[in-house]
Design a binder for these strands. Structure first.
Lengths: 213, 213
DNA sequence: TTTTGTATTAACAGAATTGTTAAACAACTT
DNA sequence: AAGTTGTTTAACAATTCTGTTAATACAAAA
Protein backbone atom coordinates (compact mmCIF):
# COMPACT_ATOMS: atom_id res chain seq x y z
CA UNK A 1 0.00 0.00 0.00
CA UNK A 2 2.69 2.45 0.99
CA UNK A 3 4.89 3.65 -1.76
CA UNK A 4 7.02 6.25 -0.05
CA UNK A 5 10.69 5.49 0.18
CA UNK A 6 11.15 5.88 3.84
CA UNK A 7 8.31 7.25 5.86
CA UNK A 8 4.82 6.01 6.11
CA UNK A 9 2.89 8.29 3.80
CA UNK A 10 0.03 8.55 6.20
CA UNK A 11 2.32 9.59 8.98
CA UNK A 12 3.83 12.23 6.77
CA UNK A 13 0.45 13.48 5.73
CA UNK A 14 -0.60 13.53 9.35
CA UNK A 15 2.35 15.66 10.35
CA UNK A 16 1.75 18.04 7.51
CA UNK A 17 -1.88 18.13 8.39
CA UNK A 18 -1.21 18.72 12.05
CA UNK A 19 1.02 21.64 11.18
CA UNK A 20 -1.65 23.01 8.87
CA UNK A 21 -4.31 22.65 11.54
CA UNK A 22 -2.16 24.37 14.14
CA UNK A 23 -1.23 27.06 11.63
CA UNK A 24 -4.85 27.65 10.73
CA UNK A 25 -5.77 28.16 14.33
CA UNK A 26 -2.82 30.46 15.01
CA UNK A 27 -3.28 32.58 11.89
CA UNK A 28 -7.04 32.86 12.22
CA UNK A 29 -6.93 34.03 15.82
CA UNK A 30 -3.75 36.11 15.83
CA UNK A 31 -3.32 37.13 12.20
CA UNK A 32 -0.13 36.89 10.21
CA UNK A 33 1.83 39.31 12.35
CA UNK A 34 0.76 37.86 15.66
CA UNK A 35 1.37 34.27 14.61
CA UNK A 36 4.64 32.61 15.59
CA UNK A 37 6.08 29.68 13.66
CA UNK A 38 7.57 28.30 16.87
CA UNK A 39 4.17 28.42 18.52
CA UNK A 40 2.57 26.67 15.54
CA UNK A 41 5.24 23.98 15.60
CA UNK A 42 4.75 23.48 19.32
CA UNK A 43 0.99 23.15 18.95
CA UNK A 44 1.53 20.64 16.13
CA UNK A 45 3.98 18.67 18.26
CA UNK A 46 7.00 19.11 15.99
CA UNK A 47 10.23 21.08 16.23
CA UNK A 48 10.22 24.40 14.48
CA UNK A 49 12.90 23.09 12.12
CA UNK A 50 10.40 20.51 10.91
CA UNK A 51 7.88 23.18 10.14
CA UNK A 52 10.42 24.86 7.91
CA UNK A 53 11.36 21.52 6.41
CA UNK A 54 7.78 20.93 5.30
CA UNK A 55 6.72 24.46 4.41
CA UNK A 56 9.96 26.32 3.86
CA UNK A 57 8.79 29.71 5.13
CA UNK A 58 6.11 31.25 7.30
CA UNK A 59 4.91 33.08 4.23
CA UNK A 60 4.39 29.87 2.26
CA UNK A 61 2.62 28.19 5.13
CA UNK A 62 0.42 31.23 5.44
CA UNK A 63 -0.40 31.17 1.76
CA UNK A 64 -1.67 27.63 2.03
CA UNK A 65 -4.08 28.76 4.72
CA UNK A 66 -5.06 32.01 3.08
CA UNK A 67 -5.88 30.44 -0.28
CA UNK A 68 -8.21 27.94 1.27
CA UNK A 69 -9.84 30.53 3.50
CA UNK A 70 -10.47 33.02 0.74
CA UNK A 71 -12.11 30.32 -1.33
CA UNK A 72 -14.24 29.32 1.62
CA UNK A 73 -15.22 32.93 2.22
CA UNK A 74 -16.32 33.31 -1.40
CA UNK A 75 -18.29 30.10 -1.21
CA UNK A 76 -20.05 31.07 2.01
CA UNK A 77 -20.84 34.50 0.63
CA UNK A 78 -22.54 33.04 -2.39
CA UNK A 79 -24.79 31.01 -0.11
CA UNK A 80 -26.48 34.25 0.90
CA UNK A 81 -27.70 34.79 -2.65
CA UNK A 82 -30.06 31.86 -2.27
CA UNK A 83 -31.39 29.31 -4.71
CA UNK A 84 -32.79 31.07 -7.77
CA UNK A 85 -35.21 28.24 -8.47
CA UNK A 86 -37.22 29.06 -5.34
CA UNK A 87 -39.94 31.71 -5.05
CA UNK A 88 -38.34 34.95 -3.99
CA UNK A 89 -39.40 35.02 -0.36
CA UNK A 90 -38.37 31.42 0.16
CA UNK A 91 -35.15 32.10 -1.68
CA UNK A 92 -34.25 34.94 0.63
CA UNK A 93 -35.33 33.12 3.76
CA UNK A 94 -33.22 30.05 2.97
CA UNK A 95 -30.37 32.24 1.72
CA UNK A 96 -30.16 33.99 5.07
CA UNK A 97 -30.45 30.70 6.95
CA UNK A 98 -27.81 28.93 4.87
CA UNK A 99 -25.44 31.84 5.10
CA UNK A 100 -25.87 31.94 8.86
CA UNK A 101 -25.11 28.23 9.12
CA UNK A 102 -22.08 28.60 6.91
CA UNK A 103 -20.64 31.36 9.02
CA UNK A 104 -21.55 29.47 12.19
CA UNK A 105 -19.38 26.58 11.09
CA UNK A 106 -16.49 28.93 10.24
CA UNK A 107 -16.81 31.58 12.90
CA UNK A 108 -13.25 32.91 12.65
CA UNK A 109 -13.29 33.20 8.89
CA UNK A 110 -14.81 36.62 8.20
CA UNK A 111 -12.70 38.50 10.71
CA UNK A 112 -9.58 36.89 9.33
CA UNK A 113 -10.38 37.73 5.74
CA UNK A 114 -11.35 41.29 6.52
CA UNK A 115 -8.24 41.87 8.62
CA UNK A 116 -6.01 40.54 5.90
CA UNK A 117 -7.55 42.80 3.31
CA UNK A 118 -7.36 45.85 5.54
CA UNK A 119 -3.83 45.35 6.75
CA UNK A 120 -2.29 44.36 3.41
CA UNK A 121 -4.58 45.64 0.66
CA UNK A 122 -1.95 45.57 -2.10
CA UNK A 123 -1.58 41.84 -1.65
CA UNK A 124 -5.17 41.16 -2.59
CA UNK A 125 -5.75 43.81 -5.21
CA UNK A 126 -5.51 41.17 -7.93
CA UNK A 127 -8.67 39.52 -6.60
CA UNK A 128 -10.83 42.54 -7.25
CA UNK A 129 -11.12 42.24 -11.02
CA UNK A 130 -12.18 38.64 -10.94
CA UNK A 131 -14.50 38.95 -7.95
CA UNK A 132 -16.14 42.06 -9.33
CA UNK A 133 -17.05 40.40 -12.61
CA UNK A 134 -18.66 37.45 -10.86
CA UNK A 135 -20.52 39.63 -8.42
CA UNK A 136 -21.79 42.01 -11.09
CA UNK A 137 -23.31 39.13 -13.02
CA UNK A 138 -24.90 37.54 -9.97
CA UNK A 139 -26.36 40.80 -8.77
CA UNK A 140 -27.80 41.76 -12.07
CA UNK A 141 -29.72 38.48 -12.00
CA UNK A 142 -30.79 38.85 -8.39
CA UNK A 143 -31.89 42.43 -8.89
CA UNK A 144 -33.95 41.47 -11.92
CA UNK A 145 -35.61 38.68 -9.93
CA UNK A 146 -36.33 41.06 -7.06
CA UNK A 147 -37.80 43.62 -9.46
CA UNK A 148 -40.13 41.02 -10.94
CA UNK A 149 -41.20 39.76 -7.52
CA UNK A 150 -41.85 43.35 -6.48
CA UNK A 151 -43.96 43.95 -9.57
CA UNK A 152 -46.00 40.89 -8.72
CA UNK A 153 -46.52 42.39 -5.27
CA UNK A 154 -44.70 39.63 -3.45
CA UNK A 155 -42.21 41.93 -1.77
CA UNK A 156 -41.09 45.54 -1.63
CA UNK A 157 -38.78 47.02 -4.20
CA UNK A 158 -35.26 47.09 -2.77
CA UNK A 159 -31.67 47.45 -3.95
CA UNK A 160 -30.23 43.93 -4.10
CA UNK A 161 -26.80 45.02 -2.91
CA UNK A 162 -28.26 46.82 0.07
CA UNK A 163 -30.29 43.79 1.04
CA UNK A 164 -27.26 41.62 0.60
CA UNK A 165 -25.14 43.84 2.81
CA UNK A 166 -27.78 43.67 5.52
CA UNK A 167 -27.78 39.89 5.43
CA UNK A 168 -24.00 39.79 5.63
CA UNK A 169 -23.99 42.35 8.44
CA UNK A 170 -26.50 40.55 10.60
CA UNK A 171 -25.01 37.10 10.14
CA UNK A 172 -21.32 37.86 10.15
CA UNK A 173 -21.32 40.41 12.95
CA UNK A 174 -22.94 37.85 15.22
CA UNK A 175 -19.74 35.83 15.06
CA UNK A 176 -17.24 38.63 14.77
CA UNK A 177 -18.56 40.17 17.96
CA UNK A 178 -19.22 36.92 19.74
CA UNK A 179 -16.17 36.89 22.03
CA UNK A 180 -16.80 40.53 22.71
CA UNK A 181 -20.51 40.29 23.48
CA UNK A 182 -20.63 36.97 25.24
CA UNK A 183 -19.30 38.12 28.61
CA UNK A 184 -21.64 41.11 28.49
CA UNK A 185 -24.87 39.49 27.44
CA UNK A 186 -24.98 37.00 30.30
CA UNK A 187 -28.25 35.11 30.37
CA UNK A 188 -29.04 35.64 26.70
CA UNK A 189 -25.84 33.98 25.53
CA UNK A 190 -25.38 31.60 28.42
CA UNK A 191 -26.37 28.61 26.33
CA UNK A 192 -24.46 28.90 23.06
CA UNK A 193 -26.57 26.58 21.00
CA UNK A 194 -29.81 28.17 22.05
CA UNK A 195 -28.49 31.66 21.50
CA UNK A 196 -27.36 30.84 17.99
CA UNK A 197 -30.73 29.37 17.13
CA UNK A 198 -32.46 32.48 18.46
CA UNK A 199 -30.07 34.78 16.70
CA UNK A 200 -30.54 32.97 13.43
CA UNK A 201 -34.32 33.27 13.76
CA UNK A 202 -33.97 36.94 14.63
CA UNK A 203 -31.83 37.67 11.57
CA UNK A 204 -34.29 35.86 9.32
CA UNK A 205 -37.16 37.77 10.88
CA UNK A 206 -35.37 41.08 10.45
CA UNK A 207 -34.68 40.47 6.77
CA UNK A 208 -38.14 39.07 6.05
CA UNK A 209 -39.85 42.05 7.62
CA UNK A 210 -37.60 44.32 5.61
CA UNK A 211 -38.88 42.87 2.33
CA UNK A 212 -42.49 42.52 3.42
CA UNK A 213 -44.91 44.83 1.69
CA UNK B 1 3.58 82.26 28.99
CA UNK B 2 5.87 79.31 28.59
CA UNK B 3 6.88 77.71 31.81
CA UNK B 4 8.90 74.70 30.70
CA UNK B 5 12.53 74.76 31.65
CA UNK B 6 14.00 74.22 28.25
CA UNK B 7 11.64 73.37 25.48
CA UNK B 8 8.66 75.26 24.33
CA UNK B 9 5.79 73.48 26.01
CA UNK B 10 3.67 73.68 22.91
CA UNK B 11 6.39 72.12 20.84
CA UNK B 12 6.75 69.33 23.35
CA UNK B 13 3.03 68.77 23.40
CA UNK B 14 3.01 68.81 19.64
CA UNK B 15 5.70 66.16 19.46
CA UNK B 16 3.91 64.00 21.94
CA UNK B 17 0.71 64.55 20.08
CA UNK B 18 2.26 63.78 16.73
CA UNK B 19 3.62 60.52 18.09
CA UNK B 20 0.22 59.69 19.52
CA UNK B 21 -1.49 60.50 16.24
CA UNK B 22 0.95 58.38 14.27
CA UNK B 23 0.67 55.59 16.82
CA UNK B 24 -3.10 55.67 16.67
CA UNK B 25 -3.08 55.30 12.95
CA UNK B 26 -0.50 52.51 13.02
CA UNK B 27 -2.16 50.55 15.82
CA UNK B 28 -5.69 50.93 14.46
CA UNK B 29 -4.81 49.72 10.99
CA UNK B 30 -2.16 47.11 11.76
CA UNK B 31 -2.92 46.05 15.33
CA UNK B 32 -0.42 45.77 18.13
CA UNK B 33 1.61 43.01 16.50
CA UNK B 34 1.76 44.58 13.08
CA UNK B 35 2.67 48.03 14.39
CA UNK B 36 6.34 49.07 14.40
CA UNK B 37 7.68 51.70 16.77
CA UNK B 38 10.21 52.78 14.16
CA UNK B 39 7.43 53.23 11.65
CA UNK B 40 5.42 55.27 14.15
CA UNK B 41 8.45 57.43 14.92
CA UNK B 42 9.09 57.98 11.23
CA UNK B 43 5.47 58.97 10.58
CA UNK B 44 5.65 61.37 13.51
CA UNK B 45 8.91 62.86 12.25
CA UNK B 46 11.06 61.92 15.24
CA UNK B 47 13.83 59.41 15.83
CA UNK B 48 12.76 56.16 17.38
CA UNK B 49 14.84 56.96 20.45
CA UNK B 50 12.61 59.96 21.01
CA UNK B 51 9.54 57.81 20.93
CA UNK B 52 11.04 55.73 23.73
CA UNK B 53 12.06 58.87 25.56
CA UNK B 54 8.47 60.10 25.62
CA UNK B 55 6.64 56.82 26.07
CA UNK B 56 9.24 54.42 27.38
CA UNK B 57 7.90 51.28 25.72
CA UNK B 58 5.70 50.22 22.83
CA UNK B 59 3.40 48.66 25.39
CA UNK B 60 2.93 51.94 27.27
CA UNK B 61 2.34 53.87 24.08
CA UNK B 62 -0.19 51.28 23.07
CA UNK B 63 -1.95 51.51 26.38
CA UNK B 64 -2.47 55.24 25.92
CA UNK B 65 -4.21 54.53 22.63
CA UNK B 66 -6.15 51.53 23.82
CA UNK B 67 -7.54 53.28 26.89
CA UNK B 68 -8.89 56.12 24.84
CA UNK B 69 -10.29 53.82 22.16
CA UNK B 70 -12.07 51.54 24.58
CA UNK B 71 -13.68 54.54 26.22
CA UNK B 72 -14.74 55.86 22.84
CA UNK B 73 -16.15 52.47 21.90
CA UNK B 74 -18.21 52.35 25.08
CA UNK B 75 -19.46 55.86 24.45
CA UNK B 76 -20.44 55.15 20.86
CA UNK B 77 -22.18 51.95 21.89
CA UNK B 78 -24.32 53.77 24.40
CA UNK B 79 -25.48 56.11 21.66
CA UNK B 80 -27.39 53.19 20.14
CA UNK B 81 -29.60 52.96 23.24
CA UNK B 82 -31.20 56.25 22.32
CA UNK B 83 -32.65 59.04 24.37
CA UNK B 84 -35.10 57.62 26.92
CA UNK B 85 -37.08 60.85 27.02
CA UNK B 86 -38.30 60.32 23.46
CA UNK B 87 -41.28 58.19 22.38
CA UNK B 88 -40.03 54.67 21.70
CA UNK B 89 -40.10 54.73 17.92
CA UNK B 90 -38.37 58.08 17.79
CA UNK B 91 -35.92 56.90 20.40
CA UNK B 92 -34.92 53.88 18.33
CA UNK B 93 -34.80 55.80 15.07
CA UNK B 94 -32.49 58.46 16.48
CA UNK B 95 -30.50 55.82 18.38
CA UNK B 96 -29.71 54.00 15.15
CA UNK B 97 -28.92 57.24 13.36
CA UNK B 98 -26.66 58.55 16.10
CA UNK B 99 -24.86 55.27 16.44
CA UNK B 100 -24.29 55.18 12.70
CA UNK B 101 -22.85 58.68 12.74
CA UNK B 102 -20.61 57.83 15.66
CA UNK B 103 -19.18 54.80 13.93
CA UNK B 104 -18.87 56.76 10.69
CA UNK B 105 -16.61 59.24 12.41
CA UNK B 106 -14.51 56.46 13.93
CA UNK B 107 -14.55 53.84 11.22
CA UNK B 108 -11.48 51.92 12.38
CA UNK B 109 -12.58 51.73 15.99
CA UNK B 110 -14.79 48.63 16.14
CA UNK B 111 -12.46 46.36 14.23
CA UNK B 112 -9.58 47.44 16.43
CA UNK B 113 -11.45 46.82 19.68
CA UNK B 114 -12.78 43.47 18.55
CA UNK B 115 -9.39 42.31 17.34
CA UNK B 116 -7.77 43.28 20.60
CA UNK B 117 -10.31 41.37 22.62
CA UNK B 118 -10.07 38.30 20.43
CA UNK B 119 -6.32 38.13 20.21
CA UNK B 120 -5.58 38.89 23.86
CA UNK B 121 -8.70 38.11 25.88
CA UNK B 122 -6.95 37.75 29.23
CA UNK B 123 -5.83 41.34 29.01
CA UNK B 124 -9.36 42.65 28.98
CA UNK B 125 -11.07 40.21 31.29
CA UNK B 126 -11.10 42.82 34.04
CA UNK B 127 -13.44 44.98 31.97
CA UNK B 128 -16.21 42.41 31.94
CA UNK B 129 -17.41 42.82 35.51
CA UNK B 130 -17.74 46.54 35.25
CA UNK B 131 -19.22 46.61 31.77
CA UNK B 132 -21.69 43.87 32.55
CA UNK B 133 -23.12 45.73 35.53
CA UNK B 134 -23.65 48.89 33.51
CA UNK B 135 -25.16 47.03 30.60
CA UNK B 136 -27.50 44.98 32.76
CA UNK B 137 -28.93 48.12 34.29
CA UNK B 138 -29.33 49.90 30.98
CA UNK B 139 -30.99 46.94 29.34
CA UNK B 140 -33.41 46.32 32.12
CA UNK B 141 -34.62 49.88 31.62
CA UNK B 142 -34.74 49.62 27.86
CA UNK B 143 -36.55 46.30 27.95
CA UNK B 144 -39.14 47.70 30.35
CA UNK B 145 -39.68 50.68 28.06
CA UNK B 146 -40.04 48.40 25.05
CA UNK B 147 -42.52 46.21 26.91
CA UNK B 148 -44.65 49.22 27.78
CA UNK B 149 -44.53 50.55 24.22
CA UNK B 150 -45.53 47.10 22.96
CA UNK B 151 -48.44 46.97 25.38
CA UNK B 152 -49.62 50.32 24.08
CA UNK B 153 -49.47 48.84 20.58
CA UNK B 154 -46.76 51.21 19.39
CA UNK B 155 -44.36 48.47 18.36
CA UNK B 156 -43.88 44.72 18.44
CA UNK B 157 -42.64 42.90 21.51
CA UNK B 158 -38.93 42.18 21.06
CA UNK B 159 -35.92 41.23 23.13
CA UNK B 160 -33.97 44.43 23.73
CA UNK B 161 -30.61 42.73 23.48
CA UNK B 162 -31.50 41.15 20.16
CA UNK B 163 -32.65 44.48 18.77
CA UNK B 164 -29.50 46.09 20.06
CA UNK B 165 -27.31 43.47 18.42
CA UNK B 166 -29.05 44.04 15.12
CA UNK B 167 -28.41 47.76 15.30
CA UNK B 168 -24.75 47.19 16.11
CA UNK B 169 -24.44 44.61 13.34
CA UNK B 170 -25.93 46.78 10.63
CA UNK B 171 -24.05 49.92 11.56
CA UNK B 172 -20.68 48.50 12.51
CA UNK B 173 -20.39 45.94 9.75
CA UNK B 174 -20.86 48.68 7.20
CA UNK B 175 -17.52 50.12 8.24
CA UNK B 176 -15.70 46.93 9.10
CA UNK B 177 -16.40 45.57 5.65
CA UNK B 178 -15.97 48.85 3.83
CA UNK B 179 -12.46 48.26 2.43
CA UNK B 180 -13.53 44.77 1.53
CA UNK B 181 -16.80 45.65 -0.20
CA UNK B 182 -15.84 48.90 -1.87
CA UNK B 183 -13.91 47.41 -4.78
CA UNK B 184 -16.70 44.91 -5.35
CA UNK B 185 -19.75 47.11 -5.15
CA UNK B 186 -18.67 49.50 -7.87
CA UNK B 187 -21.43 51.95 -8.76
CA UNK B 188 -23.22 51.64 -5.43
CA UNK B 189 -20.19 52.74 -3.43
CA UNK B 190 -18.58 54.94 -6.04
CA UNK B 191 -19.55 58.11 -4.22
CA UNK B 192 -18.64 57.56 -0.56
CA UNK B 193 -20.78 60.27 0.91
CA UNK B 194 -23.85 59.26 -0.99
CA UNK B 195 -23.37 55.60 -0.20
CA UNK B 196 -23.07 56.29 3.51
CA UNK B 197 -26.25 58.36 3.48
CA UNK B 198 -28.10 55.58 1.67
CA UNK B 199 -26.69 52.92 3.95
CA UNK B 200 -27.70 54.88 7.03
CA UNK B 201 -31.22 55.24 5.69
CA UNK B 202 -31.32 51.54 4.85
CA UNK B 203 -30.23 50.53 8.34
CA UNK B 204 -32.82 52.77 9.92
CA UNK B 205 -35.49 51.38 7.61
CA UNK B 206 -34.50 47.80 8.42
CA UNK B 207 -34.70 48.37 12.16
CA UNK B 208 -37.92 50.38 11.98
CA UNK B 209 -39.65 47.71 9.94
CA UNK B 210 -38.46 45.11 12.42
CA UNK B 211 -40.27 46.85 15.28
CA UNK B 212 -43.35 47.81 13.29
CA UNK B 213 -46.50 46.01 14.26
C1' DT C 1 24.28 -5.78 4.28
C1' DT C 2 25.14 -1.90 1.83
C1' DT C 3 23.04 1.83 -0.32
C1' DT C 4 19.90 5.54 -0.84
C1' DG C 5 16.66 8.92 0.06
C1' DT C 6 13.92 10.97 3.58
C1' DA C 7 13.01 12.54 8.32
C1' DT C 8 14.66 14.57 12.48
C1' DT C 9 17.44 17.03 15.72
C1' DA C 10 20.30 20.48 17.63
C1' DA C 11 22.94 24.10 17.07
C1' DC C 12 23.64 28.19 14.87
C1' DA C 13 23.28 32.41 11.72
C1' DG C 14 20.93 36.64 10.30
C1' DA C 15 17.64 40.03 10.47
C1' DA C 16 14.51 42.87 12.53
C1' DT C 17 12.88 45.20 16.33
C1' DT C 18 12.68 47.02 20.86
C1' DG C 19 14.89 49.34 24.27
C1' DT C 20 19.20 51.75 26.57
C1' DT C 21 22.91 54.91 27.27
C1' DA C 22 26.37 58.29 27.03
C1' DA C 23 27.40 62.36 25.19
C1' DA C 24 26.16 66.58 22.74
C1' DC C 25 23.07 70.27 22.74
C1' DA C 26 19.79 74.02 23.67
C1' DA C 27 17.45 77.01 26.63
C1' DC C 28 16.66 79.03 30.74
C1' DT C 29 18.23 80.71 35.58
C1' DT C 30 21.02 83.02 38.61
C1' DA D 1 29.27 83.20 32.17
C1' DA D 2 28.46 79.00 34.70
C1' DG D 3 25.28 75.81 36.06
C1' DT D 4 21.01 73.34 35.65
C1' DT D 5 17.57 70.89 33.35
C1' DG D 6 15.36 68.76 29.89
C1' DT D 7 15.88 67.32 24.79
C1' DT D 8 18.08 65.06 20.99
C1' DT D 9 21.23 62.11 18.59
C1' DA D 10 23.90 58.19 17.42
C1' DA D 11 25.67 54.19 18.60
C1' DC D 12 24.89 50.04 20.69
C1' DA D 13 22.87 46.09 23.49
C1' DA D 14 19.47 42.43 23.96
C1' DT D 15 15.98 39.81 22.52
C1' DT D 16 13.01 37.51 19.60
C1' DC D 17 11.96 35.31 15.62
C1' DT D 18 12.77 33.26 11.13
C1' DG D 19 15.33 30.40 8.49
C1' DT D 20 19.65 27.27 7.57
C1' DT D 21 22.87 23.61 7.99
C1' DA D 22 25.47 19.77 9.28
C1' DA D 23 25.18 15.64 11.51
C1' DT D 24 22.38 11.66 12.53
C1' DA D 25 18.74 8.25 12.60
C1' DC D 26 15.77 5.48 10.05
C1' DA D 27 13.34 2.74 6.78
C1' DA D 28 13.10 0.61 2.48
C1' DA D 29 15.34 -1.12 -1.77
C1' DA D 30 19.09 -3.37 -4.02
Amino acid sequence: MLNSKTMDTNQRQNKEKEILTAAENEFLTKGYDGARTTSIAKAAGVTHAMLHYYFRTKEQLFERIVDEKFRLMAESTLAALGDSSLPMKERIRTGVANHFDFVASNPLLPRFVINEIVSRPERYAFLHERAKTIIDTLYRGLQADIDRAAERGEMVQINAKMLFMSIMSLNIFTFIAYPFMKPLMGDLMADDERFLAERKAENIETIMKRIEI
